[in-house]
Write a protein that binds this DNA or RNA. Sequence first.
DNA 1: AAAAATACCATGTTATCCCATAAATACCCA
DNA 2: TGGGTATTTATGGGATAACATGGTATTTTT
Lengths: 152, 152
Amino acid sequence: MQLFLSKFKNKIDQKGRVSIPSQFRNILFQDGSQKMFCYPSLDAEAIDAGGDSLSRDIYALMDNLDPYSDEKDFLSTALFGLSEELRIDSDGRVILSDVLIQHAKIRDEVIFVGLGQKFQIWEPNRFSNYLQEAQKKVREQRLLLSKKNKGF
Amino acid sequence: MQLFLSKFKNKIDQKGRVSIPSQFRNILFQDGSQKMFCYPSLDAEAIDAGGDSLSRDIYALMDNLDPYSDEKDFLSTALFGLSEELRIDSDGRVILSDVLIQHAKIRDEVIFVGLGQKFQIWEPNRFSNYLQEAQKKVREQRLLLSKKNKGF
DNA sequence: AAAAATACCATGTTATCCCATAAATACCCA
DNA sequence: TGGGTATTTATGGGATAACATGGTATTTTT
């Protein structure tokens, strides 16, 4: 399985179009779909995005919940109610919706960040702050992890 | 399993290309992949790099985490977001990304240092400083150890 | 009709491929 | 062992393809 790795900075033009980094695009295209599945990230000011496998994972997650629970209703509203399948045009670009743009406080540049099975889209400054925090956490965690994981 | 051993100094050309030392390249090619997996070293001004086995170790590490926790998001941002799989071209060269170059403060020459299951890429002067300190530390340690373990 | 979405085209930049060269290494055979 | 030949390797350059990005034209929506 191909993973989303690394990060890329791209511009948004006057029409609101952004190129999806080719590395990510190729992964999305692998299952034949010309869509990018995305929704406002639940715990960050960013957009979560991915391909068919991501949307399938989320469907599967929902299926495991009690059909008549509040929890399921909340989650399906938060995820499916706000998720979109953006069409990827012939040049590999998408147009982000207003809802997504406002949630992530995006202007005219974005950062695509690979997270393995999905990726996120950030406003650049906001992302560099988040990254610093994340790196701090990793350094703390690593002490624990390194006992089990050789080499890393 | 083949180990990355010894060190090699190579040049970066005007296009940003560096030859991977053939000894290392052969190990990378063993599992058929044309990629070099790498990321900014966590505790040194250097680039950590390796092949499939290194990336698999890290993927496995992430698999153990709760898929929808923000702990996982933090870790995958710092690990996946900063990792790259650089394509090795037909002449055995890669192009290091800006992020990696800036982290390791690399200019037009690098040193590849074998560390067993992975290797590091250093700016030459920075590496020789690091090496001197490391040797000093080893000598100090050895004095302590030798009291218990003669012969080392 | 106006606005938005889509297709299509153009451009500069960068990455990728292919080939050339020189040095180093491995190989071979008398 | 020596001496010469072939092979590998690092490195440079030119040609080509891919990519991000901007623009214009055409279609669709409302």
